[in-house]
Amino acid sequence: MKNKDSRYDLFSPPEGHEARFSMKLHHRMQSSRPQNLWLRRLTAMGIAASVLLAALFVRWNEFGGGDGLSGQWTQQTAALKQSFIRQWERIEKYDSPESKKIIEDNFRQWEKLQADLEKLQKEFRENNNRAVLNAMLQNLKMQNELLINMHDQLNKIEKQARHEKSVHQS
């Protein structure tokens, strides 16, 4: 192999790529640490679904469905993916017995959303339809909101537990 010509390296990676990589690297390196497997599964599937949906949008645009919305779709799916990653980081630290019930309740809701998403994916494979793509995007947004709400609930009970502990100690 001859030496590569760097004149062709015209582009810089998107802004913030170092921080995103650093986060991925830390997650990957810490994967042996005990963690809440459900949350890992939930957020990992959210990230994978965002990536898949973005790819479907790109294909839809390329195969004649192009209507100038590709940029918006790409932005939305990219934002969703980042949000899933952020939620992953925020939520996985909660592994107390108190948080377990909240996580289980939310997980059941998430399973329903995930089942709907799988149906939509199947429907899209059978008959390419922009409305189905939009429904998939809405579904992912709901999954993301579910995670954000779950974090709020977990945060609240943790604060409450800390408060009760301090009252008890005093």
Binding site: L10, F11, P13, R20, V58
Partner: peptide, 23 residues
Amino acid sequence: ARSMFNVAYRIVNDFHFAEDVMQ
């Protein structure tokens, strides 16, 4: 990163996914 990003981008042809692939 910059060099590998460009390697990935030339094949993947998508700026956003090229970052994922490179990382």
